Computed example of a mutant assay.
Amino acid sequence: MINPTGYTYVHEHLHIDLSHEKNNIDCRFDQYELIRDELKVLKQKGVANIVEMTNHYMGRNAQFMLDLMRDTGMNVLASTGFYQQKFYPDFIASRTAPALAKIMIDEIEQGIDGTALKASVIAEIGSSKDVITQDEKKVFHAAVLAHQATGRPLSTHTTLSTMGVEQVGLLKQLGMDLNHVVIGHCDLKEQLDNILQMIDAGAYVQFDTIGKNDYFPDQKRIEMLQALQQRGLLNRVMLSMDLTRRSHLKVNGGLGFSYLLDQFVPMLLNAGFSQTEIELMLKENPKRFFG
């Protein structure tokens, strides 16, 4: 559960391996000492929680997370679920939604891979670019069933900020309480109207690829946040960076985990956001949502 005393990064990875699918060793994010050292610095800056989004077949490593918690004092919330179509194991196609839900429920109630670490979040449940496939719809159904059985919140993946509105519609149709849903990666393109629709339906949204300026500039992220600020909707927004590659770590030449606090927060303050609004997005909203 959430440590209420500090900030929360709501969409991160501490051990993920998509290198086989992407044919790129940079996508094997597993350098323990380097990640440990960055988390120690992050904790000194006031971050108390990392919501770790890596689930089945993405290279999740429960013992790695437990070791990081022991060595850094950082609270890590682990996830259960399945990612998106091209990363699914073969059995997804043949199993029912209740059978897939049981896998998630067991990891929430009993633990992950025989360790003491229990999943706290159903995530990251994803859709493909510009489509939600039939198998993805089944996994969303399973995620709803797992939420209904455990009460744990659901955090999604939208590929390049597509299909967020459709995810909300599907989840509503499946009977999900949207107060327990956050739509991920809403900040990879200009889409204020879609974000307003998601919030109006009752969901939270994440600006969780902060610093990935090659996808979408941070200044544009701030402009969308300003539009939400003007409408009094920052109480439905959470922030993160979604680091997934070795090259994202500071010592490897990347921005590093601290970029959000060291660079992006001052940009927000300069753009007219108050410290109270920053606390809302980085502390109060995650505390309310992740519990």
Rank of each mutant, 00 (worst) to 15 (best):
I2E: 04
A99S: 15
D37E: 13
V182A: 11
Y7M: 13
N3M: 01
G253W: 10
L280V: 05
T133V: 13
G151R: 06
M58G: 10
G111K: 06
M281Y: 12
R231H: 00
P266C: 06
L225I: 12
V165I: 12
H248N: 13
Y259K: 03
T158G: 10
F207G: 03
C186A: 14
N75Q: 12
T158Q: 06
E21I: 00
A123L: 02
M104L: 08
S120G: 13
L174Q: 14
A201G: 02
M176P: 11
P266S: 07
M58Y: 10
H13A: 14
D90Q: 09
G254P: 12
A142M: 09
T8G: 06
D67I: 04
Q134P: 00
V51H: 07
M281W: 11
N3A: 08
E33A: 10
N3G: 02
D30R: 00
Q219M: 08
H15Y: 06
S258T: 15
Y9A: 02
K129H: 15
K118D: 11
V41I: 14
K189H: 05
N55K: 02
I2V: 13
L280K: 11
T8W: 07
G272A: 12
H141K: 14
M163P: 00
S274L: 07
V181R: 08
G253P: 12
K220C: 04
P286H: 08
V165R: 10
G256A: 07
R288W: 01
L228F: 05
E107Y: 01
K22W: 09
L14R: 08
A123W: 01
Y83R: 04
K118T: 14
V265A: 02
F264E: 00
Y259D: 02
A146H: 05
N61V: 00
G114A: 13
M224N: 06
